[in-house]
């Protein structure tokens, strides 16, 4: 009785009850997301790992479909086409991201001059990345047709002989790089431009007082200060470039003679042309591991985590 009458014990009981109820609230709120993420994300990932260890081929039901262990992974390492597609993807990514970065930094520096008409120009520059990649692929495929395309027509006006563009094994990859740079440079530009506009003015004023010219200021002040932004932009573009599929599939389908057979195109062919799902899942996993390795190496080399920690500390 005394205990019940005392507010202390009564209060403790109520507090315990409240805490007990509260304990489950975060889980209840998180549950829908976790259930959905498990169903649509985690389960397919684990299932594809299982599929990669089978000879599952739903379109040839008269052939064995069972567990084969690591056989598909062994096959991938001895598959010259897979190795070739990985190398091409690396080359494509390096060229595309490198060129986009140079162009994006130059564009950002140019647009930072705030000359008349640049606000409208800035909007126009962003248009390519707003177009769906399928439309970009179809448009560029037509523009790059050697005899009927507008690119060779324009070159002829300048007195330059026609080029085969995507229709030759020697130039197809560069043509794909051109399309990718055209479409995704605006993405890097907008990130770098935003970073440039957010830089403090005092280091630039100090550089000016010290007599640094525009080029010296750009290399010694602007670029070092932009480093965290550039690292983020490059990281996002590297991941995106490795996954490039739509435009390449539409324009060359990986040809001619495997000259633009990026890993994404090869994966599509194994999985959805031959429906060799066991092998397709295995090379998908190997590609995922390769991308993770590249990202981790990039993060390590650029000191990305330190940059992030510094930013948060500030």
């Amino acid at each position: 009785m005394r205990a019940v009458a005392s507010g202390e014990i009564k209060g403790t009981g109520a507090a315990t009850a409240r805490r007990a109820g509260e304990k489950y609230v975060p889980w209840m709120l998180l549950a829908p997301t976790m259930i959905i993420m498990t169903l649509v994300g985690f389960f397919p990932l684990v299932h594809s790992l299982y599929i990669s260890m089978t000879s599952y081929r739903p379109t040839e039901i008269d052939k064995p479909q069972g567990f084969v262990g690591l056989e598909n992974y062994v096959r991938a390492f001895s598959d010259p086409l897979f190795g070739h597609s990985l190398l091409l993807t690396g080359l494509f990514t390096g060229l595309s991201v490198g060129l986009s970065l140079v162009l994006a930094v130059l564009l950002a520096a140019l647009f930072n001059l705030r000359l008349p008409g640049f606000v409208a120009m800035r909007t126009i520059v962003l248009v390519p990345m707003l177009i769906t990649p399928i439309a970009v692929g179809i448009t560029w495929r037509i523009m790059m047709m050697p005899d009927l395309g507008v690119l060779n027509f324009l070159l002829a006006m300048l007195g330059i002989p026609p080029q085969p563009w995507a229709n030759s094994a020697t130039s197809a990859l560069m043509a794909m790089v051109l399309v990718d740079v055209w479409q995704w440079t605006p993405f890097m530009f907008i990130i770098i431009f935003a970073g440039l506009r957010a830089l403090p003015r005092s280091p630039f004023e100090a550089a000016a007082i010290d007599g640094a010219g525009p080029i010296r200021t750009f290399y010694s002040v602007t670029l070092p200060m932009l480093r965290p932004v550039i690292v983020v932009a490059v990281l996002l573009r590297v991941i995106d470039a490795i996954r490039t599929y739509d435009t390449v599939y539409i324009i060359t389908r990986g040809g001619p003679d495997f000259a633009s057979d990026l890993v994404s195109v090869y994966l599509q062919r194994a999985n959805f042309k031959f429906f060799d799902l066991g092998y397709g899942a295995a090379i998908s996993w190997l590609t995922l591991i390769a991308i993770l390795a590249i990202v981790l190496i990039f993060v390590r080399l650029t000191g990305f985590m330190k940059l992030l920690a510094d930013k948060e500390g500030r």
Binding site: M145, P146, D147, P162, P164, N167, A169, R253, G255
Partner: peptide, 14 residues
């Protein structure tokens, strides 16, 4: 024609 390495049905007809 130039670029024949990349020609498929649509390019041939065109």
């Amino acid at each position: 024609p130039q670029g024949v390495q990349g020609f498929d049905y649509p390019e041939g007809s065109s």
